[in-house]
Amino acid sequence: MNSEIARLFWSFSPFIIMLFIIGLYCIFVTFNLIRVLVGVEVLMKAATLLVIVAGAATGHIALAQVIVVTLIVIEVVVITIAAGVVIGIWRHNNSLDTRKIRQINDEGISDE
């Protein structure tokens, strides 16, 4: 493998890992459902960048672009469905805080 291309890949990889950390931290720490979606988006960006950099490093840039287009389509559908679910949850529970939603659901179960 060309050393210049290898250097490109390994110089990108720390940033991709840090982007992954940002997304994961957001998902784990937040209690707001919309902010969980923001974390998922950041994770998707990291995955997209990884695929493109891997494609550029291995010479399969056309294949990487095809995969990224598929990834973007999946991303849009996931975010749209999740946003719909979040709106449904808000209408049902009047809150997006996962602690409150859990509390409401627990109370509902104990009432039954």
């Binding site: 919309i34 979606l37 923001v38 988006e41 960006k45 997209t48 493109i52 950099v53 494609g55 550029a56 840039i61 990487a64 672009q65 990224v68 287009v69 973007i72 991303e75 849009v76 975010i79 749209t80 946003a83 979040v86 709106i87 808000w90 997006l96």
Partner: peptide, 29 residues
């Protein structure tokens, strides 16, 4: 990184459509 097709998709869909979905969700909730 010489990926113009994926870049155009990213710009039009991820920078254009997804923020609209987010803003709609935020406004509705």
């Amino acid at each position: 990184l010489h990926s113009p097709l994926a870049a155009v998709f990213e710009l039009s869909v991820c920078a254009g459509l997804i923020p609209v979905v987010f803003v709609s969700a935020i406004t509705l909730t």
